[in-house]
Design a protein around this nucleic acid. Structure first.
Lengths: 243, 243
DNA sequence: TCAAAAGTGTTTTTTTTACACCCATGG
DNA sequence: CCATGGGTGTAAAAAAAACACTTTTGA
């Protein structure tokens, strides 16, 4: 199928989706001590947006989010949580969509389903940065990973969605033990701490952080790493299998 | 307008609403040391349900919730918070609606908008019990206030929605100072404490509770109440105006 | 043997919990 | 003048924060 045929198929798939409902995903990753968000960039218009999509009539909203996430990252079994639903009136009026489609030779009528008002259910995902293979959708190029402090201007209310996702993540961090999902399967205490420090945007005392994490009894030591550096090598931890 | 005409008008109003999107409200009230939820009861079928409704194309989801709440309680300026969106596939298939309408002489076709699958945005509201005048909608009678521990079986997933609302309220209670909204404008420390005890479902120490509440510096004393009882009268408190 | 990073231990401070005491009122 | 519920004080316990010390490694 040519890209153009893909788009045609998509534009005609309106009736398969639940009308008025969309899903937007804030995909968090952690790399080089930075908390990052995966964005898409619409072709031609160069507008940035969150990865999103629509809900098939034969799937739940959660399933839709999981599917969208998988399509954009190649990863299944992702930690995923709904955090807020955005129902403002000004959601819709997708000049970007119109322009993008136009550039592909599709002129959308003003009452086309893609240009209607949508409610958006917001999900945030915590992924292992190293496992993700960003994959654009048919409208978009890969927008890449962006540091949480340097998110460009996004379409619609997507900047607000990112803000809300971040504040929810911060709340959850010391309520649920959730941060691990952003690291690879094994990690050092230092990596875990710098993850927490990045998300919470404040320094933590090493000694106390270590005690707190270990006191929860969900970490187990794997082995020592001999990093080749001139100091005591750290333990490697992983999450206990709770079987 | 006769009731029957009302229903006809409503059934034809489908195009004015955002398709697939509904709003359900868990309205909490506090009375006689019980946390209560306001329910509706569908006429004829006797099925209980949460007060809910749909979102007009010209209003936001929050506005819709506010409107629905006002219609069912006669109260504006209600403390209202979105807590979760329910997007399961089995939402829809409204046998109850069908039966109710049928009993009014309206036979709905299976593709009628009211019988489609709906996503439901859940809101919980905290209201001053004494100010509420429960008002049924056109399908329903007043289902009345039900103790949170004795909620009857509700339609669809509404029982789950109540559960989720309650657990969110419990979390919020010691995160945001939110409980006051369930009391009348002035209240005693004893009333406030029994409210907390009811919601959290555990006893609290009187002395410490008092200290904690006062330490937040959002309460002010109004006067003493001379209750006519044989003991020291309590202070009356109200929330400080944060002007 | 030294510097650097990791791990553990100890003290201090703050917060939470528990309990005791005093106060005002109407009978 | 006392029983009762309301308000305040203080001690004990627990949790959090701050700081110090020890361990392991490669240079």
């Amino acid at each position: 199928m040519t890209p153009s045929q893909n788009i045609k198929t998509f534009l005609e798939a309106g009736p398969e989706y639940l009308p008025s409902v969309s899903v937007d995903c804030v995909i968090f990753g952690f790399h080089e001590r930075q908390l990052k968000v995966l964005l898409l960039e619409f072709k031609h218009t160069k507008a940035f947006a969150l990865p999103g999509g629509f809900v098939f009539k034969e799937e739940s909203a959660d399933e839709a989010a999981t599917r969208i996430l998988w399509e954009r990252t190649g990863v299944k079994d992702i930690y995923l949580e709904q955090f807020h639903t955005f129902g403002e009136q000004n959601r819709g009026n997708w000049d970007v969509h119109k322009a993008t489609m136009s550039s592909h030779g599709f002129e959308l009528e003003t009452n086309h389903w893609l240009l209607q008002r949508f409610i958006s259910i917001g999900y945030y995902a915590l992924v292992d940065f190293s496992k993700v293979i960003p994959t654009p959708d048919i409208f978009s190029d890969i927008g890449g990973w962006h540091d949480i402090h340097q998110i460009p201007t996004l379409i619609l209310d997507h900047n607000r969605i990112v803000e809300k996702a971040l504040s929810t993540l911060r709340l959850m961090l010391d309520y649920k033990l959730v941060g691990f999902n952003l690291l690879s399967e094994t990690f050092t205490m230092n990596e875990l701490q710098s993850l927490y420090e990045t998300i919470l945007d404040k320094k933590l005392l090493r000694a106390n952080f270590q005690r707190k994490m270990l006191s929860m009894e969900i970490l187990e030591r794997v082995e020592k790493k001999f990093s080749g550096k001139a100091h005591k090598p750290p333990y490697i931890y992983r999450i206990k299998k709770t079987t």
